[in-house]
């Protein structure tokens, strides 16, 4: 039987030491049982390694940064669509999701399907709103407050205590052990990611992550929990192992059921010594370690693509426990002319 060939656009080709999820997503798509793919990479910068991985990515286009606004992004996507006839786009960066969610209807009219959280879900789970989110859905979250001025930290000392977490609206998180550090991190983060900056109570414990997929009606289509085994100095997992933690899975299903989550997600959880699971952060997208889920039997990129196209997508029932992913880096040899082409023409 001939499998259909889908043209899928994927962002996040920056497979670097703090990697974007794109390359892992593409590996999942290439292994899909129900379709074949032609992969169109979307890159922001000309050094994203995925651009040069020709066995994974068929063609790459540069797209404008989210800060340029949706109009510019749309006109670039119209151009790409006129040449590539995309069926699906899978955006993989937090900062670009806002724009893609806004463009969902317009892209659909162009024949491009996506499977993203709703605008309301996207806003509600935001770091800045996490405290309210926890209350609303009955999930334990660390005390947090969004602040607009570094002087506010003084007033929060008693409530939060040192060390405290200082987090950017989009990216970056630091542990501050004293006022001096807290203010430095506040300035550093606000300069890069704007205001507000989130102050969060530091939770001692063991970190667990769950990646999964919700169908938008409250059903959990996929869920794989992972314990980081080795962490880089940037706090990213370099190795991790699939685990069987019923409580984690039940919190995940509760999250999907209560929020009717639509699309992929990653839950960052912290388990304290007295066995309380705090939901630290909700990433509204596929994580970079998603290939572990593929490897243990839950091909989340494939299932997400099927949901985007409105195809029937049964929930995964199980996964293999105790499988490890171990990340490695790999040096490609690239001709200068390739770098030249993507830099000058914005296409390769």
């Amino acid at each position: 039987m001939n499998k259909p060939v889908l043209n899928i656009g994927v962002t996040g080709l920056n497979a670097i030491d703090s990697p974007g999820p794109g390359v892992a997503v593409i590996r999942g798509l290439r292994e899909a049982a129900s379709f074949d793919v032609r992969i169109i990479g979307f890159a922001y910068e000309s050094m994203e390694p995925g651009i040069y991985m020709h066995d994974l990515v068929d063609r790459t286009y540069q797209i404008p940064y989210p800060s340029a606004g949706t109009d510019v992004l749309l006109s670039r996507l119209e151009y790409i669509q006129s040449r590539e006839n995309l069926h699906v786009i899978i955006p993989n960066f937090d900062a670009e999701l806002y724009s893609f969610i806004k463009l969902e209807d317009k892209l659909m009219q162009m024949g491009i399907h996506m499977f993203l959280p709703t605008q309301a879900q996207f806003e509600e789970r935001h770091k800045v709103n996490l405290s309210d989110f926890g209350k609303k859905y009955g999930l334990d979250v660390p005390l947090g407050k969004a602040i607009y001025d570094s002087s506010e930290i003084f007033g929060l000392q008693n409530e939060f205590d040192f060390p405290m977490m200082i987090k950017g609206k989009w990216y970056d998180a630091y542990i501050a052990y004293n006022m001096e550090q807290a203010r430095t991190y506040f300035n550093k983060i606000s300069a890069k990611w704007g205001l507000p900056v989130v102050i969060q109570r530091f939770i001692h414990g063991t970190e667990y992550n769950v990646t999964g997929l919700g169908d938008g009606n409250g059903n959990t289509i996929a869920a794989v929990p992972m314990r980081k085994q080795f962490i880089t100095d940037k706090g990213k997992a370099w190795a991790g192992i699939s685990i069987d933690d019923k409580k984690l899975l039940s919190i995940t299903r509760q999250f999907v059921r209560e929020t009717k989550w639509r699309g992929a997600f990653e839950l960052e959880m912290m388990k304290t010594n007295d066995n309380i699971y705090y939901l630290m952060e909700i990433n509204p997208r596929i994580p970079a370690w998603v290939y572990l889920a593929v490897g243990v039997g839950q091909n989340i990129p494939e299932a997400l693509t099927r949901l985007a196209l409105g195809k029937e997508t049964p929930a995964f029932e199980s996964y293999e426990v105790g499988k490890l992913f171990i990340r490695y880096s790999y040096d490609m040899i690239v001709d200068r002319t390739e770098f030249e082409k993507i830099s000058i023409n914005g296409e390769l």
């Binding site: 200068r336 002319t337 770098f339 030249e340 830099s343 000058i344 023409n345």
Partner: peptide, 18 residues
């Protein structure tokens, strides 16, 4: 310098557009 305005300096390894 290539036709599309990409300039490479082999001594320093820097690239430019012109």
């Amino acid at each position: 310098i290539s036709d599309n305005g990409f300039l490479f300096n082999p001594t320093t390894g820097e690239s430019y557009t012109v």
